[in-house]
Design a protein around this nucleic acid. Structure first.
Lengths: 242, 242
DNA sequence: TTGACTTATATGTCTAGACATATAATCGTA
DNA sequence: TACGATTATATGTCTAGACATATAAGTCAA
């Protein structure tokens, strides 16, 4: 057609089809709810096989830009949200990735029967055993974050015998338990006396809080709260659109 | 083979192949750097065509779980990072999505030649014109967030004549300018007097800060800083693994 | 040993078919 | 009118090939 006839070193066909459609969606030419041409129409338009347009549409569906419905067709999805991929490495990788020396210190470790608060935090009904861990991560000897973690022993029995005095629980879990789902909640608080001391900041200083819940097939594995000094640390999430 | 012979209502073959490989990666059986069997080996193992294993591997590559290198093979990727998709709707959608009444109020709008600070914030060299906007979003008449935005008029000339007294600049931009890339930086501060007044919170109360930079093909469009009361608002990012 | 050239090979893309399956639409019946 | 059965159709998956292309590895000359 007359669109994008200026292609110097032509990317592959399915990528061009994908880009064409993506562009129309992002520019609003095809608004949310709009029906994308049927595969057989695109086959005619681009003069290629169905598998090729199918690959383009499948990738757009995977990226949540369109929704595909059998017999009905493919439609531009509503949420024009910006979405960003927030990469949260485990603490060691995060700190060494910044080119700084990683330090770890176990502050407390308690094995107990889940309290009401614990059960609420893990989202479990029964009062099984849990491990509560408090520890500190530092970068170049400076406190970087304090971690307050709860592990459900019913889901991760091995954690009872793990040595968390040398290995951070986050790393240990990463290597011993495959997660399937996680939810992060980000908020801000001001440091209370205990937090202030652990992070070596002033009482009342801002802290960034990340609460992370990790499941494996609908079963809670661990709940962790990370406290970062709010003015020193920054979480970066980058999104790539077109 | 002998693995997963118990499949009640068999998902499609390529999904099973993908799940099999994913499982080995997540359990650590195939650690980062490990070479996945070649496509032709998987073809033999699963007794299917190459296109089928190719689809499975392509999806794993798209999900960043493996890396594919021509002639060399496919390898388990290093970053065991957890990554989470952070969906940031525009403010109206975010608030109405919570079932609350959305309110908007323009606090200030200034058209000026970019100052040094402005240029720094937008990451541009030349001193073109910019619009600086301050506004407030509320939910059920309660302040929800204050927004401090800078728009580069060289990239978005139409913004000069847009009426931001009724439509929030975020919504306007979303509908008028397609973005291609965005970066979010999340941090925490304590409210100064001006912020405290705008959000109707106490001076020194924690605030969650989101700085967002949006580009379209390497060109900065807008820089925005959003301030939320840190104890009331929560940013949720959810990740789906297996 | 080093650099340039050649070759083998795994992935990348594509085709022209096929059958499966969910479901919107239609038609028939209570 | 409402509901249940039937049908048409768009997508979902799959095959058995094909050629393209990047590149690891091997070859050979300077």
């Amino acid at each position: 057609m007359s669109l994008s006839t200026d292609s110097p070193d032509q990317p592959t066909l399915y990528k061009r089809i994908r880009a064409d459609i993506e562009k129309r969606i992002l520019t609003g030419e095809w608004p949310p709810g709009h029906r994308i041409p049927f595969e057989h129409e695109l086959v005619t338009r681009y003069g290629c096989s169905r598998m090729t347009v199918n690959k383009a549409l499948s990738e757009l569906a995977q990226a949540d830009l369109i929704e595909r419905r059998r017999r009905a067709g493919s439609f531009v999805r509503r949420p024009q949200h910006q979405s960003a991929v927030l990469k949260i490495a485990d603490m060691r990788a995060e700190i060494t990735g910044l080119g700084r020396a990683y330090g770890y210190e176990l502050i407390g470790r308690k094995l107990r029967t889940a309290t009401t608060v614990d059960r609420d935090r893990l989202g479990v009904k029964k009062a099984g055993k849990v491990i509560a861990i408090t520890c500190r991560h530092s970068a170049d000897k400076v406190p970087f974050a304090v971690e307050d973690r709860l592990i459900d022993l019913a889901s991760v029995p091995d954690a009872a015998t793990a040595d968390f005095s040398r290995e951070p629980p986050g790393s240990w879990l990463l290597h011993h338990v495959p997660w399937t789902e996680a939810e992060h909640t980000i908020s801000a608080i001001v440091a209370d006396d205990r937090t202030a001391e652990a992070l070596d900041i002033a009482i009342g200083a801002p802290c960034l809080v990340i609460d992370r819940y990790t499941w494996r097939s609908a079963r809670t594995i661990t709940a962790v709260r990370l406290l970062y000094p709010g003015d020193s640390h920054r979480l970066v999430a980058r999104f790539k659109g077109g």
